[in-house]
């Protein structure tokens, strides 16, 4: 997903000299083209993320479009106040790209587990929050972030789901990936890869619908309300904190409905630090987020 997003940002930057890529001294091997062919549009701000976001704000308030690049928590949590006060309050055209969402950097430990970012970014007014689940979505989100003026946060994970070429995505809209039966499974980000496999397991017994939620802000509330009226189950799945994340977002909407048909359940990472060393798949299994565990959990919910 990272290569797909960066490639599209590069393609856009080739045509628009106002697009800048600012890295916090990260992106080894992924930013080479930018660094060598678009030198004037590439800035390495060093390992100084707070300044990076402030500089990006100043550049954007002076007419540039600043795409900022670093690893998960380094831009989101460390620079929370810069993102709130400087970028979002001033409606600066700054796009924050965080790679390594969820447990992408699992073995590196808690500093690199990026699990709370979506909940925290979602809490900031005037900030769009996007989570691509496939290479296509990553490419499209680069385009949308460029075209939509204003602050953007993009969480990228390592692997997503495979899909054929898609039509243009619509900003703020949920993407139905399949629509069969009364069980609606909603996922965001790379975990959709596991959900596709879980879906195959589940469909041996009953049909299920699967939806990608590429935007937590703006959030497609109308679509959620419609699902809550039509489906028997809404099950949210995320590689991150449920509270304030996708699960929280859905619950905020359905709790305001006078009546609904759907029972809502949330699957995600529990509210605790993970002390265990392990790669992404190991940690997904630990928390029941691999395809088999997900299928089992979903079967338990619907039975």
């Amino acid at each position: 997903m990272r290569a797909s997003l960066i490639r599209n940002i590069y393609n856009i930057a080739e045509k628009d000299a106002n697009l800048l890529l600012i890295t916090g001294d990260l992106g080894f091997g992924f930013l080479d083209d930018f660094q060598s062919k678009l030198k004037d549009q590439f800035i390495n701000a060093g390992i100084a993320e707070q300044n990076l976001i402030g500089v990006a704000t100043g550049l954007s308030l002076s007419g540039y479009i600043s795409f900022c690049y670093s690893i998960g928590n380094f831009l989101s949590l460390r620079c929370l106040e810069q993102i709130r006060n400087d970028v979002s309050y001033h409606d600066a055209n700054v796009k924050i790209v965080s790679v390594g969402g969820g447990f992408s950097y699992g073995p590196l430990g808690v500093s690199h587990h990026c699990l709370e970012d979506l909940a925290i970014m979602r809490a900031i007014p005037n900030l769009s929050v996007a989570v691509p689940g496939s290479k296509n979505e990553a490419r499209e989100i680069a385009r949308i972030a460029y075209q939509e003026k204003g602050p953007f946060y993009i969480r990228l994970e390592r692997e997503g789901f495979e899909e054929e070429e898609i039509a243009e995505m619509v900003f703020g809209k949920i993407r139905p990936l399949s629509n069969k039966g009364e069980i609606a499974i909603l996922g965001c980000g790379g975990i959709l890869g596991e959900l596709f496999k879980a879906k195959q397991i589940l469909e041996r017994k009953q049909p299920v619908s699967l939806y990608s939620i590429p935007f937590l802000r703006p959030f497609d509330e109308a679509f959620i309300r419609q699902l809550a009226m039509e489906k028997k189950y809404i099950i949210t799945v995320e590689e991150g904190l449920i509270s304030g994340g996708l699960g929280g977002s859905v619950c905020e909407v359905v709790s305001q409905m006078d009546s609904r048909k759907a029972k809502v359940s949330n699957i995600g990472v529990p509210h605790q630090f993970c002390y265990e060393v392990g790669d992404q798949m190991h940690l997904r299994k630990k928390y029941g987020l691999d395809a088999n565990s997900l299928a089992q959990q979903i079967m338990n919910i619907i039975s």
């Binding site: 800035i43 707070q50 300044n51 976001i53 402030g54 500089v55 990006a56 704000t57 100043g58 550049l59 954007s60 308030l61 002076s62 007419g63 540039y64 106040e81 810069q82 006060n85 400087d86």
Partner: peptide, 17 residues
């Protein structure tokens, strides 16, 4: 209002110019 933000932003503006 929160100290330590302003210089970075002014730096970004100077870089833009």
């Amino acid at each position: 209002g929160s100290l330590g933000h302003g210089l970075s932003v002014a730096v970004g503006m100077a870089l833009a110019a």
